[in-house]
Design a protein around this nucleic acid. Structure first.
Lengths: 326, 326
DNA sequence: GTGAAAGCGCTAACAA
DNA sequence: TTGTTAGCGCTTTCAC
């Protein structure tokens, strides 16, 4: 293993000079700087991360708690993580994927000084991890918007506005009876933040607009088609539909393609995924990668002492498609 | 921040005693052990990870390079990662998600002593990272099976055997002209290890069995249906089909449901995903989580000085479904 | 069965 | 502009 002392010796300088060349915290003559840089390159030196963080009291690592299972849309999760990773790399941060999904995992990472900050996904409206996080005094960003988001920075797509937007669009298209085919029951039941907010926005807007709106949990498989069948059968004048379920989307779309009545179908999903399906009147893109980037950006701001804002919500937009299909 | 010195003081013992209580590397009287444990609990002490790894020369962290974009099946990737994470946690390892996807990222993590071992996914048949890894002298496991897997441990599902198995099954069902609808062109073009091996196993077996076999890249969207249309149109006596493309699977299955000829369709995908689709004669499960667990297990063996075996391949199995549908 | 103390490789005063 | 050195919090020899 090559240490800073090896580099110093090779360059004929002291170890602090090497350290200062790397950090730039001191003015160094061009000549020594070159010699040190050369030695570093020659020896393929990388400073020992642990030694550095022990001395500097910072790790350049962000702890990430991400949902790896459950009924979550994997595409969305992956893209959010990709956004986090990209933004993190751009600023020389690494991501520690916490292997525990509870509050204890978070406080352990924090207390053991494994991370400079925490990024927590899959937030529920009343998330048990929040109290722990607030006591922890580690810079923290939540992806989601819990009920009592008191002390913590929250970043997310504005699902509530998206629900509203969809309802308005369906009303505009002339639909009076509308339905949201949403997340699996397990996700709704545990009051996952985004699902809760989408439902709230959708139903509130329906009420304001005088629409008859309903919400239906859907399994993320072709069984979703059965749910759709039942709902359509129960209400022959239901014509407006919002779909928010990655796994169910292709199956629901296929099912609706065979329907007689004049439907208006809006999908809420990543943009590429909307392109995968035909028969949509409209879609609202979930900017998954943007969520991740915004969250990582908020962490950076926090660590830099800047104010990222208490709540950062990415606005939804219609992506009207004038396709001839379906 | 609470340090080992705080614990020692609270328990009325020396620092080294606290350390030995935690590591168990020395016999300690029951009484002192209890006092120390009590102090640790009272103070909510977690040893400083960097200090520990600086002194002990090990991090308890595994570096993971995972594919976050491209045409890869996200479900499979997520499940593999979940398997890794679960197995890692069970043995008190954490996962550092490397934010760079090239060889430089790997060698940096290794040289900076950020990790005890490396786990590399999305291996290509001739992967440029392999040489770097071999020079690195860090315990490494690849998920995939590159051409010159000389010095490194490889773990994966046996895609070659799966291709063979599918061909045999199709032959057994009486099909003489068969097709593999596989990964997107980009994945095949860069010779991703699993795609390469599946094709090889499938075509080799076809030849041995006297089947006319063909391979077709498929986009992971409903455009896959067009590929299927063309292939079926071009060969009216093609009846045996193997599908290996998560995104395309529902669309291809839907397309095939409307076909007149007597088809035999096999899907190669995670088991839950197969349950999502109707019209399958058979399926072969990709034990994604098992792959991750096996890979993490191999890392453990490596770190423990045991021999995980040079190549660990999980065997495929048919999951015949006697469904009445389709 | 327990302590004292020498590092691990680095950063950041302090000194020049 | 550069060097010397005291820690950072832990593990692990020695020593008892």
């Amino acid at each position: 293993m090559v240490t800073i002392a090896d580099v110093a010796r090779a360059a004929g300088v002291s170890i602090s000079t090497v350290s200062y060349v790397m950090s730039g915290k001191r003015t160094i003559s061009q000549e020594t700087r070159d010699r040190v840089a050369q030695a570093i390159a020659d020896l393929q030196y990388s400073p020992h991360a642990s030694a550095r963080s022990l001395a500097s009291r910072s790790t350049n690592v962000i702890g990430l708690q991400a949902p790896l299972r459950s009924g979550v849309d994997v595409h969305v999760v992956m893209q959010i993580v990709a956004g986090i990773v990209t933004e993190a790399r751009a600023h020389h941060y690494d991501i520690l994927l916490l292997t525990s999904d509870d509050a204890a995992g978070l406080s352990h990472a924090a207390r053991a000084s494994m991370v400079d900050a925490l990024l927590v996904m899959d937030i529920e409206s009343n998330d048990p991890r929040i109290q722990t996080l607030e006591e922890l005094s580690v810079p923290t960003v939540l992806i989601g918007l819990p009920a009592g988001a008191d002390g913590l920075v929250c970043v997310d797509f504005d699902f509530e506005a998206a629900g509203r937007l969809a309802a308005e669009r369906l009303a505009e298209l002339g639909h009076r009876r509308v339905a949201l085919f949403g997340a699996p029951a397990e996700v709704l039941d545990r009051h996952t933040s985004y699902a809760d907010r989408l439902v709230r926005g959708f139903l509130t807007a329906c009420e304001e607009l005088g629409l008859a709106g309903s919400v239906h949990a859907c399994p993320s498989s072709d069984e979703a088609a059965q749910v759709v069948d039942e709902v359509l059968a129960a209400d022959p004048s239901l014509t407006g539909i919002l779909i928010h379920n990655e796994g169910a989307l292709p199956h629901i779309a296929a099912r609706l393609a065979g329907e007689d009545r004049e439907l208006g179908v809006i999908a809420l999903c990543p943009a590429e995924m909307a392109g995968t399906v035909s028969g949509l009147a409209d879609s609202i893109a979930i900017p998954a990668e943007g969520i991740g980037a915004a969250a990582a950006g908020a962490i950076r701001a926090l660590l830099a002492g800047d104010d990222p804002g208490k709540v950062v919500l990415l606005s939804p937009a219609l992506d009207s498609r004038t396709r001839a299909d379906a």
